[in-house]
Amino acid sequence: IIAISGTVLAGIVIFFFLEKIIIWRHCHNAECEVHGTAGPLILIGDAFHNFVDGFVIAAAFLTSVPLGIAASLAVIAHEIPQEVGDFAILLDNGYSKRRALALNLLSSLTTLPGAVIAYFFLGATREVVPFILALSAASFIYIAIADLVPSLHRKAGLKPAICQLCLILAGIGTIAVFRLVH
């Protein structure tokens, strides 16, 4: 368990470092030449991201079917808004709706080869499955601590606080239900 916890912590540090590299090279000026090149970067990054999602889904299914289903639902839940955002970025970069949709779909399809490769690779080397899942957990934890929690603190007041608390409890409840079913 120490090795798995260490993998989660190392993953959080790695994701922090990767984000710092991306932000360091990111331009915040509206007239920056970097903005015109975001389309291809989004597509390449999303294709890699979806490939890794396939790897995580396969690792989860190799551990247990209920965990695989939970991982698949988690991936779907985070992919839908991400793909909509990617589509908007592609449109903003001058892609037609048809081309943006087709390229976005193509980059999404990399989940399948990721899952197939992982199924055969991880099937033969089952001892690395917990570490793959730990890195996946680290990515979700990093997103929560870097993006979600700070954005929750931007809305003050009793009503937003109650709504946020209910959503956090709903997330915990969902995990508890999957745990009971498992």
Rank of each mutant, 00 (worst) to 15 (best):
P81K: 02
D92F: 02
N93M: 05
G85I: 07
V65L: 06
Y95R: 11
L91N: 06
R98D: 14
A88V: 11
L90W: 08
V75P: 02
Q82I: 11
L73W: 11
N93L: 01
L103T: 01
A77W: 02
F87L: 12
A77S: 10
L90T: 07
F87T: 05
D86M: 01
A102E: 09
E83Q: 15
L62A: 09
S72R: 01
E79Q: 12
G68W: 13
I80M: 12
H78I: 01
D92P: 00
S96G: 14
R99K: 15
A88P: 00
I69W: 12
V75T: 15
E79G: 05
A102K: 09
L67P: 04
N93D: 11
L90I: 05
A71N: 07
G94N: 09
S96F: 07
S96N: 09
I76R: 05
L101S: 13
D86Y: 01
K97M: 11
L103Y: 14
A100K: 02
R99G: 03
G85V: 12
P81E: 07
G85L: 07
H78E: 06
V65Q: 01
A88N: 07
H78G: 07
D86V: 01
V75Y: 06
A102I: 12
T63M: 01
E83C: 12
A100S: 14
E83D: 15
S64M: 00
